[in-house]
């Protein structure tokens, strides 16, 4: 592995000893990517489950699994962006509830699905903007700001809904419930949305300056700033993107459940953060994979489903989800140590 030095004076042996220099592209990077290993774990669980339960490999079960994790996957795509900047967004669960109510009220009043969608996304954008503004410009800790928003958004949802459930979505109810709950070509619509969103994020992380700058901010915000990147504006946009992913998930989710309550999404933030982290997002920032979000969410849903089919009491579910979260982070640390 030793490279011959052309000029021994200039090329220190120290440099030569760095023979394991790694490049960003190629097969090696696949092996170093967390989502790849989590994907292998998913396959392994899948293989085991085909022997444990006949019901596992049925079309119906796979349909349910993919649909269930798709909502979390869409939210985790946005959460991964926030975590990439070394931030966190604890308000996504409450925001889901708030979006459910603003969307529900709009459609209930007969304004139609387009208006409902716009109001839902605008609600998300405003909440994301407030989070991002406080974090970027007032330099407040993301944990505190979004914890406050977690409480406030839920409360606003309760006030707006007057604590009532909404199940009448006006003239477009059928279309709305079809979008959220039905499928095209045997694949649930929400899964199609997840696929498209994942593809968009894959392109964004790899091929756009927005993605490159977010990753740079996560790596070294000070360096990003000195390079002329508008760090504050970028951070605001990241929190808005995260919230709007939640808004989109809310739109699909309410259509799927066919009713909106202000209690929707309680503790979802924990599931979404866990999915992002299992998918390879590093809370220290600077690491993001588009495929990590859906894969992380898929693993969590798969665990839940597998325990159910294997006849293990549902009370154990949270234990295993937590266990896999810790194992995923441990795996990442071990791989990082091996790489150095």
């Amino acid at each position: 592995m030793k490279q011959p030095a052309k000029n021994p004076d200039l090329h220190a042996e120290i440099d030569e000893s760095i023979a394991l220099r790694q490049e960003v592209t190629g097969f090696g990077s696949l092996l170093r990517a967390q989502p790849f290993w989590v994907f292998l774990a998913i396959l392994a669980i899948g293989v085991v489950m085909t022997f444990v339960s006949d019901a596992f490999m049925t079309e119906r079960n796979l349909f349910n699994i993919t649909r269930n994790f798709a909502f979390f996957g869409i939210m985790a795509l946005g959460m991964s962006a926030v975590i990439c900047t070394a931030g966190i967004d604890l308000s996504v669960g409450s925001l889901l509830g708030l979006c459910a109510i603003t969307l529900g009220l709009t459609m209930q009043s007969g304004l139609g699905i387009e208006m409902g969608f716009l109001v839902c996304m605008a609600t998300a954008a405003i909440v994301g903007f407030i989070n991002g503004f406080l974090i970027a410009y007032l330099k407040m800790a993301p944990f505190v700001v979004t914890l406050g928003m977690l409480a406030m958004a839920r409360s606003i949802a309760m006030v707006l809904s007057n604590n009532k459930m909404i199940y009448d979505f006006g003239p477009d109810t059928d279309l709305f419930e079809w979008i959220g709950g039905e499928s095209v070509l045997g694949v649930p619509n929400v899964v199609w949305v997840l696929i498209v969103m994942t593809a968009i994020f894959w392109i964004v992380w790899r091929h756009t300056t927005w993605g490159r700058w977010v990753i740079a901010i996560g790596g070294n915000a000070e360096a990003a700033k000195l390079s002329g990147i508008p760090v504050e504006r970028m951070i605001v946009s990241v929190y808005m993107v995260c919230s709007m992913c939640t808004g989109l998930a809310a739109f699909m989710f309410i259509g799927y459940t066919g009713s909106a309550t202000n209690g929707m999404g309680v503790t979802y933030e924990l599931t979404v953060i866990a999915a992002s982290v299992i998918g390879g997002a590093n809370l220290m920032g600077g690491v993001v994979y588009a495929l990590g979000a859906p894969i992380g969410a898929a693993l969590m849903e798969l665990i839940r489903n597998s325990l159910l089919l294997a006849g293990i009491p549902a009370l154990w579910q949270q234990f295993f989800v937590g266990l896999f979260l810790i194992l995923a982070v441990l795996l990442e640390q071990i791989r990082n140590r091996g790489g150095k």
């Binding site: 490049e23 960003v24 300056t209 490159r212 700058w213 990753i215 740079a216 996560g218 790596g219 070294n220 000070e222 360096a223 990003a224 000195l226 390079s227 002329g228 990147i229 600077g286 690491v287």
Partner: peptide, 21 residues
């Protein structure tokens, strides 16, 4: 800069062009 102001998690080329892609 003294502390070099580089992003460890990006490639050399990405750092050179950071902010001026």
């Amino acid at each position: 800069y003294q502390d070099l102001a580089l992003c460890d998690n990006l490639s050399a080329a990405a750092n050179v062009f950071l902010g001026r892609e």
